[in-house]
Design a protein around this nucleic acid. Structure first.
Length: 579
RNA sequence: GCCCCAGUGGCGCAGAGGUAGCGCAGCCGAUUUGUAAUCGGCCGGUCGGAGGUUCGAAUCCCCCCUGGGGCUCCA
């Protein structure tokens, strides 16, 4: 996905256009709905919105009328005028609007309070407009949505109108086209088209992976297992359903229960696991551990279930049933730095294999409410920051955003329409070993607490596949492609030779199919291209006679005829290199 | 959870009170073809589910289910 151009002057202009458009939107809404109370209307990355307190939601017809009034206001080319107002006077002006009043109360004493006027519309506003409404060259209202005041669902629900605005009609068109293109690579759509996975009301927000999707899924797991061998992890298998007593001990019952599926059997309650950590803690505690055994790294691809609220689930990227490339590291406090560092190496190696380059890294530091002493937090935060600095990754520090049980680093990757999803994470945990009374015998014979590190590189495999499908528009790299090559016989005479070619590919561990449909070569190529198959191996009489195949690549077209054995080797090498 | 929108053959869509249609896919037949769609025929839908209004409902109303857009990028 294309990065947005970073011309600061243009970005500023767009921001002002959009902010101004929000004012014009509010003006128009108030003309149609005089009792509506405007609240906030900021510019966004590629548009703007404005939230209103109104008696009823806006209908599509309302939106059309509003847009029409906006056009009138823009045509009139009203000038924007900003003026500073005395605080008490400002309060008076907005006395009928509790939202604006609240905003004013939030402005520190001594800071200026300004209003902006254009035409006969006045709004409390920090500033940042274009000179006059005529400079809003192109806009479009996009959608409506309910939105809680201050984003808090305990507050009243407001009605939001989203729009976009640009410095020219062409730019608007470009943007709308880009949105349409992005929709084409929506993983929900591609999943159906490529027969990877689907959803069914019988299991809301829980994907069904078809054979092709399962191939991708298992491909990811195979790859992670390979990395686990390299980085010293041991894979384990743990139960799906565990007695609530365990979840009480781990703290999940108190802190995470509303996200858990709980079942009752034999008058006892069991929780379906939302996380693997308690099971891994039991495994750690199943025998006496020596400092010589540390670090211990338990990896687990176990299926997790979390009850996500119905309004928040989304395709594969937010589901209720999933598994992660999850692992827990039990180590001595002085091993924290090297463990985090090792994990980041693993993560970067993996992301490189998927060409994930747009990575945002966030380091979340101690929150108000937390467990563990100051020394361990100091030590851990310093260790995390140092590892990040040494890694050369740029990152944002997020004070107060850490979990109550420890600081963490999260790795975010954007999807096709720029929404960011958290994939990788590494979290220190100072709580788990206390709750499960985990120990190891130190060099001096004393009993010590290990530190627990939760970590996942790809994160939820479901979410990862969703993001990967959008990044590649379904054109997965050869090593992950469910069908790596389609053998295309040109005539019926070539079918049995095509079968031989397929068998040779299969023998080398490659996933290949023969297209024996009663179609012309062109149609078979088109079908394979649409299915994003990396290689098409075309076979006519000429190839058959010479023991060749004509190689066509998904991207790059015809490579010409080559001996079968050479092609098998070429593909095998490409798979081995994950290139 | 809350607000809005949507659910029609496997997939993509049309139909907006008079009893369901198109394209693709699938199946059958003809064709045997050199790098993104050969032609013809056939099959396929209790219109998400359950109620109601009506002489009559895919179309209108109510409830439920599922999906989608959103729910602090803060004047």
């Amino acid at each position: 996905m294309a990065r947005r151009i970073a011309d600061p002057a243009l970005i500023d202009l767009r921001k002002r256009i959009r902010h101004s458009a929000a004012h014009v939107l509010a003006e128009s809404v108030l003309k149609l709905f005089p009792q509506a109370k405007p609240t906030i209307g900021p510019p966004t990355d590629d548009g703007f919105y404005y939230d209103f307190d109104v008696d009823r939601p806006f209908t599509p017809e309302d939106i059309e009328k509003i847009a029409e009034l906006m056009r009138v206001s823009i045509k009139a080319d009203h000038r924007f005028e900003e003026s500073e107002i005395e605080r008490s006077e400002a309060r008076k002006r907005v006395q009928d609007n509790p939202y604006k009043l609240e905003i004013i109360e939030g402005i520190p004493e001594g800071e200026k309070i300004t209003f902006a006027r254009h035409g006969d519309f006045v709004d409390l506003c920090r500033g940042g407009h274009v000179r006059s409404t005529g400079e809003i060259a192109a806009f479009k209202l996009l959608s409506t949505a309910g939105a809680y005041w201050r984003g808090d669902e305990r507050n009243r629900m407001l009605q939001r109108i989203y729009g976009t605005a640009w410095e020219s009609g062409e730019e608007l068109e470009k943007f709308l086209l880009q949105v349409a293109e992005a929709e084409k690579r929506d993983h929900r759509r591609l999943g159906t088209e490529l027969q990877l996975y689907f959803f069914d009301p019988s299991a809301p927000a829980s994907p069904f992976f078809l054979p092709k999707g399962a191939t991708v899924y298992n491909g990811l797991i195979d790859y992670m297992r390979q990395l686990y061998r390299k980085y010293g992890y041991q894979e384990v298998i743990t139960p799906q359903i565990l007695n609530v007593d365990l979840w009480k001990r781990s703290g999940h019952y108190d802190n995470y229960r509303e996200n858990m599926f709980v079942v009752e059997i034999d008058e006892r309650q069991f929780g379906v696991k939302p996380m693997n950590c308690p099971a891994h803690a039991l495994m750690y505690a199943s025998t006496l551990r020596s400092y010589r055994d540390l670090p211990i790294r338990f990896a687990d691809f176990g299926r997790l279930h979390r009850y996500e609220r119905s309004g928040v689930t989304h395709g594969l990227t937010r589901v209720r049933s999933f598994s992660q490339d999850d692992a827990h590291i039990f180590c001595a406090p002085d091993q924290i730095g090297s463990e985090i560092s090792g994990f980041i190496s693993l993560l970067r190696e993996a992301y490189q294999a998927f060409r994930f380059e747009e990575l945002r890294v966030a380091l979340s530091l101690r929150p108000e409410k937390r467990v563990g002493g100051e020394e361990i937090w100091d030590r851990a935060e310093v260790a995390l920051e140092k590892v990040l600095e040494d890694s050369g990754l740029s990152f944002d520090k997020m004070p107060g955003e850490g979990a109550f049980y420890g600081p963490k680093i999260d790795f975010f990757v954007p999807d096709a329409i720029g929404r960011e999803w958290q994939l990788g994470t590494v979290q220190l945990d100072f709580s788990l070993s206390e709750r499960f009374d985990l120990e190891f015998v130190a060099e001096d014979g004393s009993r010590q607490r290990p530190v627990v590190i939760h970590r996942a590189a790809l994160g939820s495999l479901e979410r990862f596949i969703g993001v990967l499908v959008e990044h590649t528009a379904g054109a997965l790299p050869l090593w992950l492609a469910p069908v790596q090559a389609v053998v295309i016989p040109i005539t019926d005479r070539n079918v049995s030779y095509a079968d031989e070619v397929r068998a040779k590919l299969a023998e080398a561990g490659l996933r290949a199919e023969v297209d024996r449909s009663n179609e012309r070569m062109n149609a078979k190529i088109r079908a394979a291209q649409l299915q994003k198959v990396p290689y098409m191996l075309v076979i006519g009489d000429r190839e058959q006679a010479a023991g060749n195949v004509a190689v066509r690549r998904r991207a790059g077209g015809d490579l010409g005829a080559r001996p079968v054995d050479k092609v098998v080797r070429m593909l095998s090498d490409e798979v081995a290199n994950r290139s």
